[in-house]
C-alpha cells in the first residue's frame, strides 16, 4: 500500500530513534552498575573493577551486546542527524520572533545540541578508557588482569595535570545526558505509540527519575575519585 515504504517514512525514523534510545538507556544502567564499583576502596575495589572490565571485554554474550550497543549509537546518531536536517528543511524561512519557551520544554527543543555534547563526550570517553583497555598501553594487576582501575585513578588524579578539567567536562556531559534523557525517555514511548492515560504519567515520572539519578551517579564517580586523590 505504502508508496514510500515503512523504512523511508518519517514515523519509521522515529521508531528507530525510540528503540535505539531505549536500548541505550539499558546500556547506561549496566554501565553505571559496573562503574559504581569504583567506590569500593583499596585493593578490593581495584580487583573487583578489573575483573568486571575483563569480563565485559571477553565474555561472548557481553561482546554481542557491545556490538548491539555500537550499532544503537550509530543508528541513533545517523538517524538523529537525518531527522534534524529534514526538520531544518521543513522551515526554510524562520520566524523573526519565536517564543519557544511558551509551549515546549527547553530539553525537548534542544535534543540535537544535547546529543552533540554527549557524542563529543563519548568520543573522548572512549579514547580515554575504551581504547586504553583494548589497545593500551596498560599495566597488569597482581591477578594478571589489565589494570583499568589504575588508568581511571590516574586520569582523575594528580598525575593528570588536566584532571580538574576532565572532571568538569565529565560532569557537564552528565548534565547534557540528564536533560537528553528527561525528554528522550518519555518521548521514546510516545513515538512507539505507547501512551495511555493510566500509564503515561508513570512513564513520565520514571523518565524524570532516570534522567536525574543515572547521570548524577555517573557524575559522582569522577568527582569522588578526584577528591580522594587531592
Amino acid at each position: 500500500m505504502s508508496n514510500s515504504g515503512i523504512l523511508r517514512s518519517s514515523l519509521a525514523k522515529k521508531y528507530v530513534m525510540a528503540l535505539s534510545g531505549l536500548f541505550l538507556c539499558l546500556f547506561l544502567l549496566g554501565h553505571l552498575v559496573g562503574n559504581l564499583q569504583l567506590f569500593i576502596p583499596g585493593e578490593e575495589g581495584q580487583q573487583a573493577f578489573n575483573e568486571y572490565a575483563h569480563f565485559m571485554t571477553t565474555f561472548p554474550l557481553v561482546k554481542l551486546l557491545s556490538y548491539l550497543t555500537y550499532a544503537a549509537v550509530l543508528f541513533h546518531v545517523v538517524d538523529g542527524i537525518a531527522l534534524t536536517l529534514q526538520n531544518r528543511k521543513a522551515r526554510p524561512t524562520g520566524y523573526v520572533k519565536e517564543k519557544g519557551s511558551a509551549n515546549a520544554s527547553w530539553s525537548s527543543r534542544n535534543m540535537g545540541i544535547l546529543g552533540t555534547i554527549i557524542l563529543v563526550f563519548l568520543v573522548s570517553h572512549m579514547q580515554n578508557f575504551w581504547y586504553m583497555m583494548h589497545f593500551g598501553p596498560i599495566d597488569f594487576d597482581s591477578d594478571g588482569l589489565k589494570d583499568l582501575h589504575a588508568v581511571v585513578m590516574r586520569f582523575f588524579g594528580p598525575e593528570n595535570g588536566l584532571a580538574g578539567l576532565a572532571v568538569a567536562g565529565y560532569v557537564l556531559a552528565q548534565f547534557a545526558l540528564g536533560f537528553h534523557l528527561i525528554h528522550g525517555f518519555q518521548s521514546a514511548f510516545q513515538s512507539l505509540g505507547l501512551r495511555h492515560s493510566k500509564y503515561s504519567p508513570l512513564i513520565e515520572r520514571a523518565g524524570l527519575l532516570f534522567g536525574i539519578v543515572v547521570p548524577a551517579l555517573f557524575a559522582s564517580i569522577p568527582v569522588y575519585l578526584f577528591y580522594i586523590q587531592l
Binding site: 518519517s10 529534514q86 526538520n87 521543513a90 515546549a104 520544554s105 518519555q186 513515538s191
Partner: peptide, 15 residues
C-alpha cells in the same frame, strides 16, 4: 502519512 511526508512537513520530536 505518505502524503504528509511528500508535502515536506518536518518530523515529530514530541516537544
Amino acid at each position: 502519512v505518505d502524503q504528509m511526508d511528500k508535502e515536506g512537513f518536518g518530523n515529530c520530536t514530541n516537544t
